[in-house]
């Protein structure tokens, strides 16, 4: 392969998620790995696309997106990889005297040092503040080249989750869940009288009356089965 493939980091770009599904008005094309996407002249290879020998080529299965001079593939299935600034929901999986290990649904656990934990904690007191199996809302502080990451709980709304449930959604469905300008999510919150926090790692915290929580879960299942069943 001449020049070697050029690839973007393996995660969705911020802009796309915020606008949700952009599949309006034009037929979309499902591409598969190895598929030729035309001349690379004047086009940037975006997510899931590489440029090789003057041609663009898909390396993931997904919907072809063409916007802003870049050709990209919106994958049909994704594994979450942390990026700095992401809001995430994690589970405490272990702890030492001065830090916690946090499971994020990503390939690697993140580290939460005591200094970035909630409030002031004494050395050796990690477990009395947050124990194994507890869920937390936190933010990715930094990510190393080799995917090791550090999370922080210093910031607005970052805390231990004490009630409600955490549900998992495939990260690529988040756009559809949130809707244009956050419309779908706002409607879901109103309809169910639940408090809902959607995190970037495909986890959602839902808190409210049990009936409301069940209603949200039903809607989520519908969304997943529509996505699986081939509807768009």
């Amino acid at each position: 392969m001449n020049g070697g493939p050029v690839a973007r980091p393996d995660s969705m770009t911020k802009g796309k998620r915020a606008t949700g599904s952009r599949n309006h008005g034009r037929a979309s094309l499902l591409v598969i790995p190895g598929e030729d996407l035309g001349d690379s002249e004047g086009k940037e290879p975006g997510h899931g696309v590489i440029s090789t020998g003057g041609r663009l080529k898909a390396v993931k299965r997904g919907m072809l997106r063409d916007g802003g001079g870049a050709i990209s593939v919106e994958p049909t299935h994704t594994t979450y990889f942390p990026r700095p600034g992401d809001l995430v929901i994690g589970y405490i999986e272990g702890c030492t005297n001065n830090l916690w290990f946090v499971e994020l649904g990503a390939p690697f656990n993140a580290i939460l040092p005591m200094s970035l934990g909630p409030g002031k904690i004494d050395f050796g007191g990690t477990r009395s503040v947050m124990d194994i199996g507890d869920a937390i809302i936190c933010r990715i502080q930094e990510v190393e080249e080799t995917h090791s990451s550090v999370v922080t709980m210093k910031g607005m709304g970052l805390r231990k989750i004490r009630s409600g449930v955490v549900e998992e959604v495939d990260p690529h469905l988040l756009g559809r869940l949130i809707g244009k300008g956050g419309e779908s999510l706002r409607r879901m919150k109103e309809d169910t009288a639940c408090r809902i926090v959607v995190a970037d790692n495909g986890r959602m915290w839902i808190d409210g009356e049990l009936d409301g929580i069940l209603e949200v879960r039903r809607k989520l299942n519908e969304l997943s089965s529509i996505a699986k069943g081939g509807g768009n």
């Binding site: 589970y91 194994i132 009630s163 449930v165």
Partner: peptide
């Protein structure tokens, strides 16, 4: 896998 405490409560 770890057992989420929230799951048990729920």
């Amino acid at each position: 896998p770890i057992v989420p405490n929230l799951l048990r409560d729920h």
